[in-house]
Amino acid sequence: MNAVASENKISELLKERNLSDAFNLIVEQYKERLYMHIRKIVIRHEDADDVLQNTFIKVWRYLKDFKQNSKIYTWLFRIATNEALTFINQKKKKAEESFDNYEQYLSNTLESDEYFTGDQTQLILQKAILTLPEKQRIVFNMRYFDEMKYDEMSEILETSTGALKASYHHAVKKIEDFLKTV
């Protein structure tokens, strides 16, 4: 089932108030895309797993209230992004308490991560991305890797397309500045 067909099927099930089947279909259709979206934010697989579970729990909890004013897809990505940001902020707070730099920690983790298959160039790029502020990092990942359209990103991140374009521009600049130093 392609993305559009599954979105329609989910929409139908929701209208029928068949929440259980709708939820199962959502999990099946979006788990991998949501995982990758989350993983690029939290970096570690174990953390991505936690956040993905939390995301689906939220989906399960609020599915009955979903009014279909937006696409299922954007609703899911919004929840996933917020969950990932909440997770990161909690981790940062803990890191601050122990006087550690969380981004630096993630950057170091990547080098020994068995689920990171990138070469040295990819590692440098990820380290450059990790120097960005979280929201800029998310914008960069969505645009650069997922090639998401600005209006879709705007729906997910609840930010204007103009602000997103500016954010992406700054992100690219910062990354290139970082790459010059390597």
């Binding site: 990758m36 689920y115 990171f116 298959t117 160039t121 990819q122 790029l125 650069y144 890797f145 010059k180």
Partner: peptide, 17 residues
């Protein structure tokens, strides 16, 4: 290395089996 375009666009994150 100074240009983002020089880097191949690929997903380096792997999902465990």
């Amino acid at each position: 290395m100074s240009k983002l375009n020089d880097i191949k666009k690929e997903n380096a994150f792997k999902i465990p089996e």
